[in-house]
C-alpha cells in the first residue's frame, strides 16, 4: 500500500539514481551533487525510519504533514537561495569576461590600425 513513508523511500532512491546519473555523464558538478545526495539521503532515512519524523513532530507540537511541509519548504528555500548566490557570482564573472573581451578587441583594432592586420596563419605559427 502506498503511504508517505513509501513515497519518501521511492523519492530517495529516485534522487540518488538521478544525481549519480547526472554526475556520471558530467552534467552536474560534484560540488552541487553533494547537496542533492544529502537530500536523497534525508528522503531515504525518513522513508526507512518514519518514527524519526513522527517523534520530531510530536516534540515540536506539529502534525506530521506540517513538519514534512516545513522541512520541504526549508530545503527548497536553502536551495533557491544558494542558486541565487551562485547566479550572482556567475553574473560577475560574465561581466568581467565581457568587458575584458571588449577591451582586448579595442586594443587589437588599434594595433592592427597601426601595424596592419596580422594573418591568422602567422598567429598560429607563433603560438605553436
Amino acid at each position: 500500500m502506498i503511504n508517505a513513508e513509501f513515497l519518501m523511500l521511492l523519492g530517495g532512491v529516485g534522487a540518488f539514481v538521478m544525481t549519480l546519473y547526472w554526475v556520471r555523464v558530467r552534467e552536474l558538478r560534484e560540488r552541487y551533487a553533494i547537496g542533492w545526495l544529502l537530500v536523497a539521503t534525508l528522503l531515504l532515512l525518513t522513508g526507512l525510519f518514519p518514527d524519526v519524523l513522527k517523534t520530531l513532530a510530536d516534540r515540536a507540537h506539529l502534525s506530521y504533514p506540517a513538519l514534512v511541509l516545513f522541512v520541504a519548504l526549508g530545503l527548497i528555500y536553502m536551495n533557491s537561495f544558494f542558486v541565487s548566490v551562485a547566479l550572482t557570482k556567475h553574473y560577475r564573472w560574465n561581466v568581467r569576461l565581457t568587458q575584458q573581451m571588449a577591451l582586448l578587441e579595442e586594443r587589437l583594432r588599434r594595433l592592427e590600425d597601426a601595424h596592419g592586420p596580422v594573418p591568422i596563419e602567422q598567429i598560429e605559427t607563433e603560438t605553436e
Binding site: V95, A102, L103, E106
Partner: peptide, 25 residues
C-alpha cells in the same frame, strides 16, 4: 576616439565600468 563594443547589452553600470577599466589598462 576609442570604441569598445560589449557583445551583449549589460546595462549602464557595466558600460561605464568598462570605461574605468579602459582607463586602468
Amino acid at each position: 576616439l576609442h570604441v569598445a563594443h560589449l557583445p551583449v547589452n549589460c546595462g549602464i553600470g557595466v558600460a561605464v565600468q568598462t570605461g574605468y577599466r579602459f582607463a586602468v589598462a
